[in-house]
Design a protein around this nucleic acid. Structure first.
Lengths: 242, 242
DNA sequence: TCGAGAACTTGATCAGGATCAAGGTTTCCA
DNA sequence: TGGAAACCTTGATCCTGATCAAGTTCTCGA
């Protein structure tokens, strides 16, 4: 596989700065971070860490899509987070991974060695603040997702997922919104607590009912975002999935 | 209702200090906190805050049990957190509540006015650190719960819930473990993403199969914790619900 | 101690989504 | 460019947990 190295050469041309853990860092602080960071690219489908592995780093997603998931002994699994560019991976103060992290597409991470990074958080209060913000945003998103998993119908689950993707990845096109789904049907089913067959059927139903237009299997157009919002049930204040 | 005021007179006799947000505070810092805090007791069943309400405080649970929940327009609801003594409520840096908070039993909270509390977190690094720890622990618990909601059977859900209660509330008794359930069957169903009838039936089934002994409707004994662990599916590393 | 309401249990039936099974597309590389 | 594998769709059937409907057992105040 020819693999283009997508790593930015330095923080100055980094595409995710505004939302990342380092968003409020001064040039000087960035220089400090530079000493403890390294970029690495993972192939689509490869594993970044497995549950129980020692975690020697934390990282930011620079490009691509990763998933956080948890499995049961008999093979049942549930995705518990979707990691898009600027999202943060890892947990200062914890030695081993609590979940599996998997690259879904080709994935570039900006890694920080954990020990020195912890020193930075302890001494740099705005990094610590940013970390709290990130953790609390993810907590809100996780709880929102609990409502989805526990109480929503299959159709509502699909609509909610499309809504998240539309908000985070969509681009306006005339009346509607255009986007490319970041996940396969299979990964969608893992995320939504459904089977792949149910995902496929509900996508077909939403298409039949004019809620979305499919072009191939990943490219979709949402002609009317409010219609989709209705279908999603009760996402009144907007899901902002971590 | 005769209502005994359970509020401790001061931090020195506070039962939840070791695990609370103020666990690492010096006496001096406690004096500072003392100026911005107040105790308040809520009757069982009463609402502490509703989603969308302005949040003017953060708080620690001192005694009793509260729930965090989220509802849909048509009445469906999902509990997204169970708050036991020492757990923290609220989110610095957010103006309105993202979820409903309800007192399940008589509940005593130690409130801190939000604005001055935010000042404390900004200037006291170990409070900020404790806040990160708490948020990340809750995030882990929420993600663990997502696996339960998305993939576990009704029987496994009940067993997982009992396991959490046993770990956090149980006391050893001979071979087994004894505890009083903190929730009604109805609240359990909200928590587990089930109906009350299913909860009742599965409790009966677990009793029939000797996994638990019921005494009345809330007092239970677990003769064999490992047996319960098996029934819960895959809680290998231990659920520590926030 | 009685009575009313809340909390809980149990039974019968139903339905949404899982499972089993087969076939159709797309992608990718040899 | 052809073939295999991955990915996706569609159909038939099944099963777990929801829903509907009575009862029963607690709890607590009068």
């Amino acid at each position: 596989m020819t693999q283009v190295d997508l790593a930015p050469k330095s923080c100055s041309n980094c595409p995710i700065r505004p939302r990342a853990i380092c968003s409020r860092c001064t040039d000087e602080e960035l220089n400090e971070l530079d000493k403890i960071k390294y970029y690495k690219t993972y192939a689509a489908g490869s594993s970044v860490v497995l549950m129980g592995d020692p975690m020697t780093f934390v990282a930011s997603v620079v490009a691509g899509v990763a998933t956080l998931s948890r499995s049961m002994a008999d093979g049942r699994m549930q995705m518990v987070g979707l990691l898009l560019p600027s999202d943060f991976i890892g947990r200062p103060g914890r030695e081993t991974a609590s979940f599996d992290v998997t690259a879904v597409s080709e994935l570039t991470l900006c890694h920080f060695h954990k020990k020195p990074f912890e020193k930075v958080t302890q001494t740099t209060s705005h990094v610590q603040e940013r970390l709290i913000e990130i953790a609390l945003d993810e907590l809100d998103a996780a709880r929102e997702w609990m409502l989805l998993l526990g109480r929503k119908t299959a159709r509502e689950k699909i609509a909610s997922f499309l809504l998240i993707c539309a908000r985070r990845l969509g681009s306006r096109e005339g009346e509607g919104l255009r986007l490319e789904l970041p996940l396969t049907r299979d990964a969608m089913s893992d995320y939504l607590g459904l089977t792949i067959e149910t995902v496929s059927r509900q996508m077909a139903a939403l298409k039949r009912d004019g809620v979305l237009v499919l072009e191939g299997t990943r490219k979709i157009t949402i002609p009317d975002l409010n219609r989709l919002l209705d279908e999603a049930g009760d996402d009144s204040d907007g899901v902002t999935l971590a």
